[in-house]
């Protein structure tokens, strides 16, 4: 009597769209919290956004606490 051993290798396919969306979330979130110097609000507020720095001021304490450069 002979036995045949079968090994099933399961491969998981990673959806590219989900990875793309997560890369967007990563970059956008990091930009808002760590790097925005008025750029985001300048899209609606114009040049004034660069002196108001609303996003910068709102994320100010987290920016310091998480180690991002500030001021």
């Amino acid at each position: 009597m002979s036995f045949r051993n079968q090994i099933q290798i399961s491969e998981t396919k990673v959806p590219k769209a989900a990875i793309g969306l997560l890369i967007f979330v990563l970059c956008f979130g990091l930009f808002i919290v760590g790097y925005d110097q008025g750029q985001l609000f300048s899209l609606v507020q114009g040049e004034q956004a660069y002196s108001d720095l609303w996003v910068h001021e709102f994320a100010h304490d987290m920016r310091h606490a998480a180690g991002f450069p500030c001021h």
Binding site: V14, I19, L22, I23, V25, L26, C27, F28, G29, L30, I32, V33, G34, E57, F58, A59, H60, D61, M62, R63, A65, A66
Partner: peptide, 28 residues
């Protein structure tokens, strides 16, 4: 007071950002 509220909101945003990074690293 407004900035301290912002710290929690910014924490949520930063958390989602790093959660996304961990998701990408985890899946591979």
């Amino acid at each position: 007071f407004w900035q301290k509220g912002g710290e929690v909101v910014a924490g949520t945003i930063l958390g989602m950002s790093f959660g996304a990074l961990l998701g990408i690293v985890f899946v591979f």
